[in-house]
């Protein structure tokens, strides 16, 4: 469904992503793990069209989306939940969700009801300004917001960041539910343990290039990965 082939991204003179290739098949949860600064978010931003690759191609549903504007990419069914939550703080919960459905024409009520069913907390706070929500609620809101566009592939950038362990578990359970309902997932995480435990396949990014890849289970069991990323 998504095929990233040999992308190279630069921040000025800094070669941030060096020939990264990865693939997400329909129905999969794929995770991209790695240390701080390895370039995980950069890869997602490039796929979303916020950054441009100098080489290679990004194929989504048989179309090269490399040169598409990011709002066009969303229309194709590829949504990203950005790092650090980034809800619209001064808008209400409901307005935030409406923005998620910006590219859709016609009635969005059905989708909104589904999102509220998925995240009952958001329904309670629907009229509240998003800036007044707790961190966990904001994370639910950004996920709900991304779902409003009916994505075929959902990319999540560190959804566990800054959340209490119990909330992290909740968020990961929701990711699995979404996947069972038919959304393919590309998950970027620093919490490698959690990410690998739910992933079908995984890639390990080290200073801008893919160091290891394999199934989630293979990586959890690999000695090197355990030492480097799973704390022993």
């Amino acid at each position: 469904m998504l095929k990233v082939d040999n992308i190279n991204v630069y921040y000025g003179a800094i070669h941030a992503i060096k020939g990264v290739s990865l693939e997400v098949n329909e129905g999969e949860i794929v995770t991209l793990i790695g240390a701080n600064g390895a370039g995980k978010s950069t890869v997602l931003k490039t796929i979303s069209g916020l950054l441009r690759s100098k080489t290679g191609e990004i194929i989504f549903l048989d179309e090269n989306i490399c040169s598409l504007a990011s709002h066009k990419i969303v229309e194709r069914g590829l949504a990203q939940v950005p790092e650090g939550r980034r809800v619209f703080l001064q808008m209400t919960v409901q307005e935030n969700l409406e923005m998620g459905a910006y590219t859709r024409r016609g009635n969005i009520k059905g989708t909104m009801e589904k999102v509220y069913a998925q995240f009952p907390r958001l329904l309670e706070r629907r009229k509240q300004v998003a800036g007044t929500l707790s961190g966990g609620e904001q994370q639910m809101l950004v996920m709900g917001r991304a779902l409003m566009s009916h994505p075929k592939l959902l990319m999540l950038d560190e959804p566990s960041m800054g959340l209490a362990p119990i909330l992290v578990e909740q968020i990961f359970a929701i990711i699995q539910t979404l996947n069972k309902e038919g959304t393919s997932i590309l998950l970027v995480e620093q919490n490698a343990q959690m990410a690998l435990s739910i992933a079908d396949r995984a890639y390990v990014l080290e200073t801008g290039s893919i160091a290891v890849s394999g199934t989630g289970r293979e990586l959890i069991e690999s000695d090197n990965i355990r030492k480097a990323y799973l704390g022993g």
């Binding site: 990011s70 709002h71 969303v74 229309e75 619209f88 307005e95 923005m99 910006y102 590219t103």
Partner: peptide
């Protein structure tokens, strides 16, 4: 209106607005 809300979204966070599909 949708356009008016998109304007508010852009004034708050252009990057996130782009990810919503707002031009």
């Amino acid at each position: 209106t949708k356009m008016g809300k998109a304007m508010r979204a852009c004034s708050e966070d252009k990057g996130a607005a782009q990810l919503m599909g707002i031009s």
